[in-house]
Design a protein around this nucleic acid. Sequence first.
DNA 1: TTTT
DNA 2: TTTT
Lengths: 145, 145, 145, 145
Amino acid sequence: MASVNKVILVGNLGKDPEVRHLEGGVAVARFPIATSETFKDKNGEKQERTEWHNIVVWRGLAEVAEKYLKKGQSVYIEGKIRTNNYQDKEGIQRYSTEIVADNMTMLGGRTDAGANNSNPETAGSSSGGRAEAPAFEGEPDDLPF
Amino acid sequence: MASVNKVILVGNLGKDPEVRHLEGGVAVARFPIATSETFKDKNGEKQERTEWHNIVVWRGLAEVAEKYLKKGQSVYIEGKIRTNNYQDKEGIQRYSTEIVADNMTMLGGRTDAGANNSNPETAGSSSGGRAEAPAFEGEPDDLPF
Amino acid sequence: MASVNKVILVGNLGKDPEVRHLEGGVAVARFPIATSETFKDKNGEKQERTEWHNIVVWRGLAEVAEKYLKKGQSVYIEGKIRTNNYQDKEGIQRYSTEIVADNMTMLGGRTDAGANNSNPETAGSSSGGRAEAPAFEGEPDDLPF
Amino acid sequence: MASVNKVILVGNLGKDPEVRHLEGGVAVARFPIATSETFKDKNGEKQERTEWHNIVVWRGLAEVAEKYLKKGQSVYIEGKIRTNNYQDKEGIQRYSTEIVADNMTMLGGRTDAGANNSNPETAGSSSGGRAEAPAFEGEPDDLPF
DNA sequence: TTTT
DNA sequence: TTTT
C-alpha cells in the first residue's frame, strides 16, 4: 500500500538528550524539542503557542545526539510519527506520540548553549560537516553519480 | 524564533470525515488516515505496522473533505503536529495528538471507495484539479510570475 | 555545515523509465514526471501550468522503476535537487537540473496505464507494500523499537 | 490532477538579495543559497559537493528578505520548483530552474554576517518571531482552534 | 522543558 | 557565490 509518513521539524531542545545503550551496543537517545508559532487572537493581541515533540533517535544518530546536542540547541529533524499505546497503572489504554528521526542536522541555536563537546563549533563538521551518521543516509555517496 | 513544524502524509481514510459547522459558518472536519510500513522482524518474517493519524481540517478544506473524501480514499496531507492536553474524567492530564492540515490532495485510493460526489474521478479536477481551497494556498497565483 | 536539500513530488510519469545497467551491475533509471497547478489569470480565467521534473534513481530503486513504473503512473518521489553543468557543443556552459530520488512510492495513477509487470496492483505490495528497495531505507526496521 | 511540488532547503545565502519593486508595488527578491553534502570518493577521501539554488520570493516575503537577509545568513526555505525556458541570444531554447518560496525562516548563519538591519538578532522577532509575512501563511491563525 |  |  502506498503510504508516506514524514515529519520535518526545526526547533530547540528542551533538555539534554537521555541516552541508553541497549544490550548489543545499540544506542537510543530521547529528547524534547519545541516549535513555536505566533498568531493574533480575537483581540488582535499577539499570542504564542509552543508545541513539544518527543524525539527518538537510534544507533549512529543517538551517538551524535549524545555527543553534540544539548538543551537550547536548534536542530533540524526529519523522521516519522509513531504513536505507542500502553496500559497505564489503572489498566487504561493510553497513547504517546513520538517522532522517530532518521535524519538530524545541528543548526546552532542559543549561542551560549555549549555542548558536551569542548568545541561545539567544530563538532558537527568533525563528523563530516553534517551532524548525522553516514550509516543512516538514504543513499551511499561513494558511487559513480 | 526559527521553528518549523511540518508533516507530510500519504494514507487512506479509515472512516468518512465527520464535519461540524461552527457558529459563524466555519467548518471543521476530522478523519483518521492510516499509513503502513513493512519490516522484517528478528526471524526474518515480514511484519506490517500501521500508524493512525487524526487529521483536522478547517474552513474550505473541511468543505472539500465533506464533499469529496470518503473511507478508503487515498490522500496527500500537509500540515502540522498539534498535541492537545485535557483532563480526563478522573482529572488526570491526558494528551491527544492530531495533524492540522493546511494542504490536501486526493490521490484516488480504493477504486471502489466511491465518494459523496456522484463522480469521484472529476471531483478533484472540478475544484481546480487539486483538492484544496484556493484560499488556503500559500501564494496567490494571479500575479505576474 | 548545516544544510538540507529535500524535494517531495507527487506527479505522473511522462514516459516509461529509461534504465541503464552500468559496469559493476549498478542500475540507473531516468524518467520525467509532471506536476500541475491551476491558477486564475488576470482576467479570472482558469489556467494550468505543468512543471516537468527529471527524476534519477539508482540501484534498487532503479530496478523497482524498471519493473513497476510506466508512463502515466502516479508516483510519490522524495529526493534532492542536483544541477549538473556541462559544455554544449559550442563550448558554452549549460545547466541541467534533476531530482535524485532516494525514496519512491507508487500511487497508482492512470488506471489504464498498465505496468511492465503483469499485475501492477500487487507490484508494490509484493515488494513490501512500499515501492522501494529496503537497502535504501534510512532506518533498518528489524531492530527492537 | 493530484500533484505535489514541494522543496525544503536549509542553506546559506551566497549573496545579498536583489530586490525589485514592480509597478503596483509588488516586490520580488532573488538570492542564491548553497547546500552542501560531504561524501567519500572511491579512494575514501572526503569530498564536498555544493549545490546552488536560485530562490525567488514575492510580496511580503520579498520585503522580509530585503530587510533581514544578507550574504552568509542561514535560512529555511519552503517552496516549489519552477523551470523557466527562454531563448538565448542565438535563439536556442535554454532552461533555468528556480525555487519559488512561500515560506522562509531565518536560522542565523554566520555569526558575523550582519544584516541590513542594525540589530539582526531582533529582526526576525520584530516581525513576529518568525521571518515570514503573515499574509503568506497557509492558515490564518486568529480563529478558534 | 526550548527559543525569540 | 555560502557555510563548516
